[in-house]
């Protein structure tokens, strides 16, 4: 009986206050969408880290004619130096770190270069002897890049040791920024949502002050008086959270599954399945925010 009564009170509250309830739904929808977007960026970063760090290679570029490093003092790399470097890479000492070693000659480097820049006029002016020979080293553990760098950067015949991680880290930095911006927008919008929920509950309490006054007089408990208001806010926020989840899922389905994954097949993207992880988080967040802000409002505006 009491439950049915509370439900009917909620219904009448929402009907009387429809425009405010709608705005609460929309504001929580937007704010939680941004919260979710920040979450998705983080998921994507983790995914890419996992994917790329397994495939990162360290490249040892060998000396060419005009290298300026001290390890290239003797000019272009010699047969002996190259053999020594390869032997060292394949030695017992580095076996725990090094997974595979591939040699790339100047001709192969040129072929790769031509592939990569096939549409650029620069291809015609580049010759094989301008490109360095290299050893492509894939590591057992990508994090142990430093070991190879220290051991080989001053080795005679090695011009430079380069790690693709620097490049990846720049990408991750940008993505991190994007998620921080999304989180900042989410913060502002969430603040708006809290204020709006508080105002809505205040209006709702005001428009029903006659009922609540009578409820107090006849000895209704605090829960019966306040619960309809709190649930009104919580229901609106949960609807907003469901909309936000649907929007994120839709966006990931069309943008990531439908477009990005096809356009960049070599990149690991999060799937729309992973978005579903966020749904309970968003709904809980919306409910807790609305519950707390209406509870605080009621303490001031509905005396019991």
């Amino acid at each position: 009986m009491r439950l049915a009564f509370i439900l009917s009170e909620i219904g009448s509250g929402i009907r009387r206050n429809l425009s405010m309830v709608t705005s609460v739904i929309l504001v929580t929808f937007i704010s939680l969408t941004f919260v979710g977007a920040a979450g998705l960026f983080q998921l994507q970063i983790n995914q890419m880290k996992g994917y790329w760090y397994d495939r990162v290679q360290v490249t040892l570029y060998l000396c060419v004619d005009n290298s300026s490093e001290t390890s290239c003092a003797t000019g272009p790399v010699t047969e002996d130096q190259r053999a020594a470097i390869q032997a060292k890479l394949e030695s017992e000492q580095f076996a725990p770190y090094v997974d595979t070693v591939t040699y790339e000659s100047q001709d192969e480097a040129l072929a790769h270069f031509r592939d990569q820049f096939a549409n650029s006029p620069i291809v015609d002016s580049v010759t094989a002897d301008q490109l360095p020979e290299s050893f492509r080293v894939s590591l057992v553990d990508a994090e142990k890049y430093e070991v190879i760098d220290e051991a080989f950067s001053s080795e005679p015949g090695v011009d430079a040791v380069s790690d693709q991680r620097d490049f990846l880290e720049a990408i991750f930095r940008y993505m991190n920024w994007a998620s921080v911006v999304a989180l900042a927008i989410a913060g502002v919008m969430t603040f708006c949502a809290i204020l709006l929920i508080a105002t809505t509950i205040r209006l709702s309490a005001f428009s029903r002050r006659r009922e609540t006054g009578i409820m107090r007089l006849v000895g209704a408990s605090k829960a019966v008086i306040q619960l309809p208001f709190i649930l009104e806010g919580v229901i609106a926020a949960v609807i907003g959270a469901v909309l936000a989840s649907a929007a994120l899922w839709g966006a990931s389905r069309f943008v990531i599954d439908g477009w990005l994954a096809n356009t960049f097949p070599q990149t690991a993207f999060i799937s729309s399945q992973q978005v579903l992880i966020l749904v309970p988080v968003l709904i809980l967040l919306g409910a807790v925010l609305a519950g707390l802000s209406s509870l605080l409002t009621l303490r001031r505006y509905v005396k019991v």
């Binding site: 009986m1 009491r2 009564f5 009922e211 009578i214 409820m215 006849v218 209704a220 019966v224 008086i225």
Partner: peptide
Amino acid sequence: FRLLPNKTVFANVAFAMQVIGRSR
């Protein structure tokens, strides 16, 4: 008087019982 204007006579009186959880 302080009646609820949008409720019938019966509902106004019943309201006092509903809010303290009396059965239908």
